[in-house]
Amino acid sequence: MVATNHQTYVYIGLGGEGDYIGEGGLVRRADGEEEWSDISKGLPDNPQVRALAIRPDDPKVLFAGTDKGVFRSDDRGETWDALSDSPDGHEVWSLTIHPDDPNVIYAGYEPCSISRSEDGGKTWNMMDTSQVVYPHITTYMPPTGKRVIGIAFDPSDTKDIYAAVEVGGLLASRDGGNTWLSVIDGPYIKNNTLDLHHVQVSAAAPGTVHIATQTALFLSRDKGARWEHVQVDEMFPGGSYCRDLLVAPDDPKTIYLAAGAGGGAAPPDTVQEGALFRSRDAGETYERLNLGETVPGRMMAIAIDSAAPDHIYCAAYSGEVYSSTDGGGSWSKSKTPAESSRSLHVYPMVCG
């Protein structure tokens, strides 16, 4: 049961990529507050915040992954400390905390690499990705840069960890993250199904891996050996831009998908639109939730407060944030303060 005085804080990272880099930033808003607060002070100048993680046993502790490495705050973003997580030139694109030990944190980077801390971020070691071989089509069709954009544990066996690579397929570790291999390949004429945006594994279906790609949603029932296309409403001819996946913290059979129209695989004249989908059967089928309006940008991120799992949030590329405190029955809307653009838009979101 949630304490009556519980207040959820929501955090959103802002940034760009490639040739499109703006001022970046990190904003915060608590339940009951009207405005979003900028909490970028203490991060690098113009921080490109593309990854966030919140410590589940102490939600005041927040980790931000930036173009200059990982930073930690112990006071909900009021102050920040730089962590020595990687060599120079590694930009952070994903952060994940071990489901059984909150002191163990994984960070994923561009160029493709993964590091681990086992002491809450004080010290880090790079993991072995030397055996990774990307699907051939992703090595010559632009973009050819590889970034680890999502990392997920199998809760039923935490030695099995998966890493989604944008335009690079899926990696897996079978030894708790020490070594990594590519686990998806095949005959392709386009690279959009290998343009991964996230990965999740639910305790309700051990060994079943769910991946969100540029054009569709897929699942594997055998740890990545074979794949099935999961049908969701097409938001443009031939598919949907699938961006984020999240298993509900209180019900492993419930999975949320952030999707949209637009993005790399969509026709050039596609009108941008976002959507939130929900599965009640561990990812077999999905229904589209009514957020009260047509979302004007691709849906980018989902967050659920593990201490108050009826508090659900989703955020669009263009800065609209939709909030529900009744498990998705009704929604309210706010907007991040910065004017969104290709150089400055929503990336990650966490809450707690």
Rank of each mutant, 00 (worst) to 15 (best):
P135A: 10
T285I: 02
V70A: 03
E166Q: 03
P111K: 13
A205L: 07
D310M: 03
I302Y: 03
S330W: 08
V104E: 11
L246T: 06
I114G: 00
S340N: 06
R298E: 05
D157Y: 11
V92M: 13
S73D: 02
R226M: 11
H136F: 11
Q200T: 13
I54N: 08
P337G: 06
P135H: 10
M126Q: 15
S202A: 12
D160H: 14
A64Y: 11
G25P: 01
D154V: 10
A216G: 07
S334T: 15
A261S: 14
R55C: 09
D75L: 10
D57L: 05
D31R: 09
T270K: 08
A315P: 13
T215Q: 12
R221W: 01
G150T: 12
T294M: 09
H136T: 11
G263N: 02
V209F: 08
L291K: 08
S156H: 08
P59A: 06
G16N: 14
M299D: 05
V271D: 05
I54A: 04
G150N: 13
E284F: 06
Y109S: 04
P99S: 15
Y106F: 15
D269R: 12
G274L: 08
L95M: 14
V183P: 00
D19V: 14
E320F: 06
R72Q: 09
G24V: 03
D305T: 10
K335G: 09
V201L: 07
A338M: 10
L257V: 04
V148M: 13
R298F: 00
E293G: 06
T144C: 03
F236H: 14
G150Y: 09
L196K: 02
P187A: 15
G329F: 05
A266D: 07
N290P: 08
S318M: 04
E284M: 12
A315L: 08
R221F: 05
R147N: 13
V92Q: 12
K60Y: 07
L219M: 04
I255D: 04
M349L: 02
T123F: 11
Y9E: 12
A204C: 08
